[in-house]
């Protein structure tokens, strides 16, 4: 019989075969050190400092929270959309990518990934109204075919860009369920602590 290379995985202990090392490397690529986030994010190259980026991060997160509530999606979907946004800006610069567009795209994609789909038309219209909250003529404007089509087109282009940027890594595991389990296990009934941990 020809030699069989052992590294190719015919191992007697089959249980060890389920989590090959490659996967661990694969998932590790979305973990960043504080230094990487603060000093080396793509936005830094475009003279957007850490403080400004943190502000932008807050902005898109609250935008997503509001958008998600308007669209009546579960909190998990909102969290996924936020993660997608975070991932996007770890590979792309704020200077070249309008955060409102990217956030809207993240929500649209997050809805698909979490199997809580929302119609593209709903996402486009609701997001547009949110973006121009200060402008009373906005709800009127988005009803115009031209404005709507342009906005929709932009979201669809953005979807491809986001998919390409995050390289289809859309399986995001959220810490919420393990958190509840941990609180239970540690018998912590302190509501305030749970709330802070949840919103961390």
């Amino acid at each position: 019989l020809p030699a069989n290379h052992s590294q190719h995985g015919i191992a007697r202990d089959t249980s060890s075969m389920y989590i090959p090392e490659e996967i661990q490397i694969c998932t590790r690529k979305w973990y960043f050190s504080r230094q990487e986030i603060e000093d080396h994010s793509p936005s830094r190259k475009d003279d957007i400092d850490h403080v400004r980026e943190s502000q932008l991060r807050k902005l898109y997160c609250s935008f997503l929270q509001e958008l998600g509530m308007e669209l009546k999606v579960p909190q998990v979907t909102i969290a996924t959309a936020m993660m997608l946004c975070h991932r996007f800006y770890m590979r792309q610069s704020h200077a070249k990518n309008d955060w409102q567009t990217i956030a809207t795209v993240s929500m649209f994609l997050g809805c698909k990934a979490e199997e809580t789909p929302r119609w593209l038309s709903d996402v486009v219209v609701v997001a547009y109204k949110l973006m121009y909250k200060w402008d009373p003529s906005a709800p009127q404007r988005i009803r115009q075919r031209e404005v709507y089509d342009k906005q929709k087109e932009l979201i669809l282009i953005g979807e491809r860009l986001l998919l390409a940027t995050v390289a289809f890594d859309l399986n995001i595991e959220h810490p919420y369920k393990p958190l509840i389990a941990a609180l239970k296990r540690l018998e912590i009934s302190h509501k305030e602590l749970a709330k802070i941990a949840w919103n961390f």
């Binding site: 490659e22 694969c26 199997e115 289809f168």
Partner: peptide, 13 residues
């Protein structure tokens, strides 16, 4: 989208 993100995670000899 779902399938590709799943298939991407499949790493087995």
């Amino acid at each position: 989208i779902k399938e590709i993100s799943l298939l991407k995670e499949m790493e087995h000899s």
